[in-house]
Nucleic acid binder design. Structure first.
Lengths: 252, 252
DNA sequence: GCTCCCGCCTTCCGTTACGGGAGGGTCAAG
DNA sequence: CTTGACCCTCCCGTAACGGAAGGCGGGAGC
């Protein structure tokens, strides 16, 4: 089971140049050479290359990878366990970033302004006291901002007005259902939750049931989104959120 | 709302040098300068920096990011939508990698050998016909490999034998339950599934219910894992898998 | 046996995205 | 009016390769 550079490169999805480089720096030296000086890789080399590729994907510099792999106290299974942990951690971080993006999209849709630190905190290591005084003026400048956001959204004026009308119509009908005393998991409320989801999808971004329930949680967790609904009618934020959840469950 | 380089750097979690660099290449030039030549960033610059950070996290080179951001046909919401898509795609890829790692861990635990392409295909773009002849000799060399894998696992000989004994004992008791005619979702079968999970956790790696059901699916989907169980008793793979699923659901 | 082409070799220079100073001005606080 | 924390502009260094040049090796076909 001996392979040439080209074979290894194609199989592992790297370039020959990369393998040369790894050989140069001693990260992955082929187990032997042919009489003509050709590099010959064996299965153990492939094992090592697999580990290298995973650590690289996780952002480790090559010299650290070399240190990790050549650490005699770590057996192969330890590497797999470690990579499993690192990968799941990384997925968690990306999911936080997705949540942050969803929040940003919804904030934009509702003309709610986010603070600088909210937009960057998902990247970690930020300085919380840099913008302390900025927090107070979060609640202002509504009309000018609304108008500017209309333009940047890329819609024509009529489009924007139609969207606004649809949204307000939805709000009215939702308040009616609420006022009727129907529970949040009633068919009427759920139907309006579904309509809300499709309204978002039609006008702004693809809102899956999963994304939708994420928004619902945000409506009750974040004061600004809560305030948006509460000013329409007290208790609306929680009611909307529950209806969205009920709708999502029923469609699953 | 004007910020200095240092403030922006701390808030966004980048270095001052990075901002200098972005200014140099024209990716992010501050909207103004003070009389003394100090860079002055405003909120729009922070918006742009946020987008830059996300695209960077997704692996885009800086010149491409500049091209994307300066594309006049794309409004801010389009960027958010795009980043949402890219992020979820990336999460999906990482989840595949996690599954591959779990497969590798379980293969190691069961002394099953994987082919080179299986270990690399998660990275994409590999050449499937490179190792065609290698597939035939997948089923061999059991004892020597077993012995070597014992050593590399970092256990003492006694540990290894105890683990082996536990595993075989579990297998025997599982076959008993199967033979008794009890369904796979019976309490007895589920209890043994749980024991299986804890056995893995105790000896090899942290096996959550989620990971465990993943393994269960693999036992029936992959011929080598299926064969491992079928050689103990026909129908065992599916039965084990069902018991694991039932156990996981009941614990949720 | 010869040719041809593909794959391999080494060497070397280029690139990206910054890191990290050196040398020197700036600004608010004490 | 000094001091320390910031800011500026060069400028050189580094990591992880990319890519091409210039030259062997090897097996398939004539």
């Amino acid at each position: 089971m001996a392979y040439t550079v080209g074979q290894v490169a194609r199989a592992a999805g790297v370039t020959v140049r990369t393998l040369h480089h790894y050989d140069e720096i001693g990260l992955l030296s082929p187990s032997g050479r042919s009489s003509a000086g050709y590099r010959r890789y064996d299965d153990a080399d492939l094992d090592r290359l697999q580990l290298i590729r995973y650590y690289r994907e996780l952002g480790f510099p090559l010299d650290e990878i070399a240190a990790i792999l050549d650490d005699p106290t770590a057996d192969p299974s330890a590497h797999l366990r470690r990579q499993h942990e690192l990968l799941t951690g990384r997925i968690g971080k990306l999911q936080e970033m997705v949540a942050a993006i969803e929040m940003a999209m919804e904030a934009r849709r509702m003309n709610i302004k986010l603070t600088p630190q909210e937009r960057f905190e998902v990247f970690g290591d930020f300085d919380p006291d840099t913008y302390e005084d900025e927090a107070r003026e979060r609640w202002g400048e509504s009309d000018a901002y609304r108008e500017s956001s209309r333009r940047t959204a890329g819609y024509s004026k009529e489009d924007w007005l139609r969207n606004k009308a649809e949204n307000e119509d939805w709000g009215r009908r939702f308040v009616e259902v609420m006022a009727s005393g129907a529970p949040a998991d009633s068919p009427a409320a759920m139907a309006l939750a579904e309509e809300h989801r499709q309204l978002i999808t039609r006008w702004f971004y693809d809102c899956s049931y999963e994304v939708h329930t994420g928004l619902a949680d945000m409506y009750v967790a974040d004061e600004r989104f809560t305030a948006y609904f509460e000013q329409i009618r007290p208790g609306m934020a929680a009611y909307v959120a529950e209806a969205i959840h009920a709708n999502a469950i029923s469609r699953a």
